[in-house]
């Protein structure tokens, strides 16, 4: 059952230096309980997409077209009051830097209580009990005492757990995790991702995991969407994407990632860099970096081929 669907979403930022077309024709859907990875280089539009889904885009952002539907409700046209009721309760987000995202001058327990008071209709006393319970659920040792701590008194891994407790306090149906473990140790990363995975399985929560780490996405996601310069270039079940990538960019991305059994000389760098998203762009934004480019690539609009029922590629000359 589809929980979230993004249909042909285009978004641009108006800046003094011109209009930056950050997302173009993005189409994705997410089923209940599914974990979808979104991978790509920085600047590919991963975070812009997640902010747009949550309706917390920068004021300079303009939606140029498309729709975002959450259980049938179009989030882009819904009144602000409906969105406020949804965010934090039905859909929640974990941000990249927990220390910046948490309120630095409020004890972490209070911050969780705030969400519960706003959305769950609990009394203060109930909220306090539930906040400590949430801290315990994300395996923070001594949650009673930790609830009174401020973010600066906790390690990065602990703060990230608090963020997760905050996001999951109202048992949302959708969790967007934007680089939730960047900057954390691999051991902490594994613990945090295990936690998100366990909680998602328990309550059939859908997760969008945004990361630039292909290895992490490979291990944790059911399906993966690859983004390049504001386009979703390939979407496929995880195993298919890694064993038989069909977009030339996906193949390059995999070939450049360090992994066991591969020597330095075998890593293939990706030539070129992301194009400037201002001004005129060819239908395929990867064309200038692509080794397979030919006349067909610039001829018509970017095709979206279903090479298999579940496997979409936005390429005129797929592998």
């Amino acid at each position: 059952m589809t929980l979230l669907s993004v249909e042909n979403l285009s978004l641009a930022f108006r800046t003094r230096a011109g209009t930056v077309r950050a997302l173009e024709g993005v189409t994705l859907d997410l089923a209940k309980g599914e974990t979808l990875g979104i991978v790509g280089e920085s600047g590919s539009g991963k975070s812009v997409l997640s902010f747009a889904i949550m309706g917390i885009s920068d004021p300079a952002a303009r939606i140029a077209g498309g729709a975002v539907r959450f259980e049938g409700l179009d989030l882009l046209t819904a009144p602000a009051r409906d969105l406020d009721a949804l965010r934090g309760a039905e859909m929640a987000m974990i941000f990249q830097n927990p220390r910046v995202a948490l309120n630095p001058i409020r004890p972490v327990g209070k911050q969780i209580e705030d969400v519960l008071l706003r959305h769950a209709g609990l009394t203060r006393a109930e909220a306090r009990v539930k906040a400590v319970e949430m801290l315990a659920r994300v395996r923070i040792p001594d949650p009673e005492r930790r609830a009174k701590a401020y973010p600066f008194e906790m390690s990065g891994g602990m703060c990230q757990r608090v963020m997760i407790a905050l996001a999951l306090a109202c048992a949302p149906k959708l969790l967007i995790a934007d680089e939730p473990t960047t900057g954390l140790d691999v051991t902490t990363q594994a613990a945090i991702m295990d936690l998100v995975g366990d909680l998602a399985r328990e309550s059939r929560m859908a997760v969008i995991l945004i990361t630039h780490d292909l290895g992490l996405a490979a291990e944790r996601c059911d399906r993966i969407a690859v983004m390049h310069a504001g386009h979703v270039v390939e979407v496929a079940p995880t195993a298919d994407l890694f064993t038989a990538p069909r977009h030339p960019y996906t193949r390059r991305l995999i070939a450049t990632t360090p992994r066991p059994g591969v020597a330095l000389a075998d890593l293939e760098p990706i030539p070129g860099s992301l194009p400037d998203l201002r001004g005129d762009l060819p239908p395929c934004r990867y064309a200038a970096r692509c080794e397979r480019v030919d006349a067909a690539c610039g001829a018509g609009p970017l095709p979206r081929l279903a090479v298999r029922p579940n496997h979409l590629v936005a390429c005129a000359r797929p592998l």
């Binding site: 040792p141 691999v186 051991t187 594994a190 613990a191 290895g215």
Partner: peptide, 23 residues
């Protein structure tokens, strides 16, 4: 061993992961 087991990697099935518990 725990550190190596925690590295996410492509295409390599590591079987049961060695999980570290506690601080």
């Amino acid at each position: 061993r725990a550190l190596l087991a925690a590295i996410p990697s492509l295409g390599e099935d590591k079987g049961e992961r060695l999980r570290l518990t506690g601080e």
